[in-house]
Structures are given as structure tokens and as C-alpha cells.
């Protein structure tokens, strides 16, 4: 059965590129352009992986991650999260710690841009787990 991936990014071009790359490997791709939409799709689609951008309008990736800490979302806790952003990992970790007092608990962190082959490799690793 094909695996389903939710991609959340405010840049439609990035969404298109990622969709093409992921669909080439027979993944089913669901997209969202901000955190609110992302969370709604997470609920509705029950994906096998979420690829999440951090800097987005309306509700950014940091707030999505914070929201997912809430017990209400415990059902979705097992879904791996891959952060794909242009923000440096260390800077993001610090910001998240400062804002929430928690450690940034994501399964993988990739700084954009990332060559398709490497991206697919990381995705494969996460979905297999």
C-alpha cells in the first residue's frame, strides 16, 4: 500500500517541486500552506509522515510542533515529523526552547535546499521506522 506524506510549506513552488519528487516514488502527497491547514489535514488524512516548514504565515511550524505536544493530539504522536526549512537547525532549536521551554522533538531536520536524492533517502528512513 502506498504511503501518504503530508507536506506543509507556505511556498507553492516548493510544494510543487516536493510533490513531483515524492510522487515519482509512488508516495501519496497531501499539501497544506500553513500550520492551521496542516493540522486539519493531519487529522483528516492520517499521513505516514509530515514534512513541515517552520516559517509560515497564520500558524508557523514552531506553533504546530507546540500544539502537537497537547494530549489532544496523542493519537498522532506516532507520525514522524521531518522539518524542512531554511532556518539553521541550531537557531531553530534555541528559539523553540526559548519560546516553549521544551526541546525541539522532531525526527529529522533538513536545511533547504536539499538535493532530491538525499531528501528521498531521509524520507525512506523515516517511513520505514
Amino acid at each position: 500500500m502506498p504511503k501518504k506524506i503530508l507536506v506543509v510549506d507556505d511556498d507553492p513552488d516548493i510544494l510543487d517541486a516536493l510533490t513531483m519528487i515524492l510522487e515519482s516514488q509512488d508516495y501519496i502527497v497531501v499539501t497544506a500552506q500553513n500550520g492551521v491547514e496542516g493540522l486539519a489535514n493531519l487529522k483528516a488524512e492520517m499521513p505516514d509522515l509530515m514534512i513541515l516548514d517552520l516559517l509560515m504565515p497564520k500558524m508557523d511550524g514552531f506553533r504546530v510542533l507546540k500544539e502537537l505536544q497537547d494530549p489532544r493530539w496523542s493519537k498522532y504522536k506516532s507520525i514522524p515529523i521531518l522539518v524542512l526549512t531554511s532556518v539553521r537547525e541550531e537557531a531553530s532549536r534555541r528559539r523553540y526552547e526559548l519560546e516553549t521551554g521544551l526541546e525541539l522533538g522532531v525526527d529529522d531536520y533538513i536545511e533547504k535546499p536539499m538535493p532530491p536524492e538525499l531528501l528521498l533517502e531521509r524520507v525512506r528512513k523515516l517511513i520505514k521506522n
Partner: peptide, 15 residues
Amino acid sequence: LTAIQGFLWVMIGGY
């Protein structure tokens, strides 16, 4: 630039 790079890679990769 990241978006452009993404498209370029998609094309180069034959996707």
C-alpha cells in the same frame, strides 16, 4: 532561490 533550486533539481533528476 530555494524554490528555483527545487525546480532545477526536479528537472535534473528527471522527475
